[in-house]
Amino acid sequence: MAEKIALRPALPADAPSLAALFRASIEELAQEDYSEAQIEAWAAVADDEEAFAKKLAGELTIIALLQGEIAGFASLKGADCLDMLYVHPDFARRGVATQLCDALEKLAGARKAASITTDASDCAQPFFAARAYAPQKRNMIFLGDEVLGNTTMTKQLAASKENVQ
């Protein structure tokens, strides 16, 4: 039987926990695809917790709870950009990212988006490819002295007849 994952909107009080989850996710789950220096630069994005909280609050951010603990979070920027999707390493490969992604794709559809786009890290690309996201272009992200690669990927959303009244 699948574990029950609950979703809820992120609250301002969640920011410190989400910053810690962001760091843990990158530090443990990105090791095969990025160097130690790249991982440190990427994880450091959450060091300014006030700026990180402001970013989360400026987007539609949802949290996944598993066994009462925050297992992951994801955010939708505007109507059609999946901006962040992070799962705590303790909850990896348990359906958390799938549930979060399903929810954001539905929300994008409800916002009348024809497609959804994300800049997928090298470690997340297989996950998005399996969900019918197609690679569009390669990007270079400059963080301090480090350069990290990611890939812009887009998925066409099914035209929802439910939205037409």
Rank of each mutant, 00 (worst) to 15 (best):
E32D: 13
A97E: 08
G95T: 08
R23H: 11
S75R: 12
V45A: 10
K112W: 13
M153W: 09
S160T: 03
L29V: 04
D83V: 02
C81H: 15
A124S: 12
A37M: 01
D90Y: 00
L29P: 00
M1L: 12
Q99Y: 05
P9K: 09
Q125M: 13
Y34M: 01
L66C: 12
S75W: 05
I26R: 01
G68S: 03
D83A: 14
V87P: 11
I70N: 01
E40F: 07
A113W: 08
A113F: 02
Q99L: 15
G95H: 05
R23Q: 12
D90I: 00
K161I: 04
E50Q: 11
A43I: 04
A124E: 03
T61P: 02
Y86G: 07
P16Y: 07
F73A: 05
A53Q: 10
F142L: 07
A74M: 08
A20Q: 08
G149Q: 13
S17T: 12
D47P: 04
F91W: 09
G109E: 07
R94K: 15
T152Q: 09
E28H: 11
L107T: 14
A53L: 11
L107S: 10
I62W: 12
K54P: 00
I70H: 01
A108F: 08
L56C: 14
Q31F: 00
E50L: 05
N150A: 12
V96N: 03
F52G: 12
K4A: 14
T154K: 08
A114I: 00
C81I: 14
D102G: 02
F73Y: 15
F91Q: 05
L56E: 08
L18H: 00
M153Y: 03
C81V: 15
L21M: 09
R93C: 09
P135F: 04
E105V: 03
A19V: 06
A134V: 15
G109A: 14
D122S: 00
M84E: 13
K137S: 15
A41Y: 03
V164L: 15
L85D: 11
P89K: 04
E162T: 07
S35C: 06
G72L: 09
A20S: 11
D145K: 13
A114T: 09
D80I: 13
A37H: 05
P9L: 12
E69C: 02
K4M: 15
D33W: 02
F73R: 05
Q165D: 04
A132C: 13
F128K: 04
E40S: 13
Q67H: 11
A159W: 06
L104M: 15
L107G: 07
T117E: 06
E105H: 01
A46Q: 02
A64M: 11
I26S: 07
D33A: 12
L18V: 05
R93Y: 08
A158N: 10
L85G: 06
